[in-house]
Amino acid sequence: MSDSKTGILAMIGACMIWGLSPLYYKLLTNVPPLELLAHRTLWSLVTFAALLAFQGRLGVLRETLRSPRAAAILGFAALMISVNWFLFIFSVQIGRVTETSLGYYMFPLVAVLLGVVVMKERLGRWQWLAVALAALGVAQLTWGLGAAPWISLTLALTFGLYGIVKKRLSTGPVVSVTAEVTLLSPIGIIWLGWLHSHGQGVFGHDLRTSALLAFSGLLTALPLILFSKAAQKISLSTVGLLQYLNPTLQFFCAVVIFGESFTGYHAVAFALIWLALAIYSWVSISQDRARRKSAATSLAEAPL
């Protein structure tokens, strides 16, 4: 199988796991969100640390955490991803998966806007149009429902900030995520210790719940590994397009499987954001093709 096909299959696998993960968290509605977040953090650390140990790369993790600059960046990234994880878990438990889907659809456009504000990047007219359409979708949903879609906005913003700070790190995704959960783990251990000391912890009370909690580590690690593999083998524009499979599957879970409310205001908001994403994707693909064509031309004209 070619590298391109392998990369596409790996990306589809990662997005299917992310997109269908609400089904998993729906099985754990008996576990409070903070407790579930603490378990996800700890079991992720166990899984990632075992993977790095198998690869003989634990030393890279230690060196990364010893760097004050890297530790500061990773600390902020850990805060952003923990808020993102908690809000996602909480949203699934209270039946708001439609809003998580909207948030992850909005993420690429929020990331573009953050790039303008934080990284001083410049956008073309079509990219500004995409951002404006997304903003219009959020505005009409806010007007129609009488409240802003805070879950969607917070998910998109925290993931966007997470992505921006991670660009400042030279370490790979597995090492950096392991470092993040390493920094978060003491908080998780203290919280779980307090719960169990007061007879409130759920782990160990029944095999099903305990096994599902332990599985959260693999559920976090596997799609990240697949995503990393895909990013090495296919273009960024293809990665970007395939990523929309994640919120699409979340949307399917919310409306078809969970039967969540989907009003006309939701329909208009989603339509505007889908149109914005279509424009954004078209621009991204065009720019990627232009870069590859320019690189091929420069290579062909280079003196031997």
Rank of each mutant, 00 (worst) to 15 (best):
L102D: 01
A72M: 11
V92A: 02
L79Y: 06
V110Q: 06
T158F: 09
A72Y: 12
L222K: 10
M119W: 10
G103L: 08
Y105L: 11
Y25E: 02
Q127W: 07
I234N: 01
P108H: 10
A147N: 12
A14W: 01
L213K: 00
L58T: 12
V174S: 04
I190H: 06
G56Q: 03
V116K: 09
L20N: 07
P247R: 02
K167Y: 12
I151G: 02
I225Y: 06
T178N: 09
L109H: 06
A231N: 11
K293P: 05
E260V: 13
L241A: 11
A156Y: 04
A14F: 00
Y104G: 03
I81H: 07
T142Q: 03
Q93F: 10
Q232R: 15
L241V: 14
W43A: 01
P33T: 09
Q287M: 11
P303K: 07
A132R: 11
Y280D: 05
L212N: 00
I273P: 00
F90V: 08
F88K: 05
C15L: 11
L27M: 08
Q55P: 00
R40F: 01
F159Y: 15
L27N: 03
L129M: 06
D288P: 07
K293V: 13
L37K: 02
F270P: 01
S261G: 10
I257Y: 10
A278T: 15
L207E: 10
S91G: 12
L27H: 04
V117M: 12
A71I: 04
S281M: 07
V60H: 04
M1T: 10
G144F: 09
A295L: 14
R66K: 13
W191D: 01
A38T: 04
A53C: 04
R292G: 07
L218M: 11
S281V: 02
A230S: 11
L37F: 09
W43K: 00
L109F: 04
I73S: 08
I81V: 15
L37V: 09
R66L: 13
A50H: 09
A269G: 06
I89M: 06
T41W: 01
W150M: 10
A77F: 02
I187V: 15
R57G: 05
G59W: 08
L207W: 14
T142G: 07
T182C: 13
L52T: 03
L9R: 10
A296S: 14
F227Q: 06
A71T: 14
G172P: 02
A231K: 14
A211R: 14
V256H: 07
T100G: 11
L114H: 08
W282G: 09
L141Q: 15
G146M: 13
M1E: 10
H196W: 09
V83T: 14
V255Y: 00
W43S: 01
I94N: 05
L27K: 03
A214D: 05
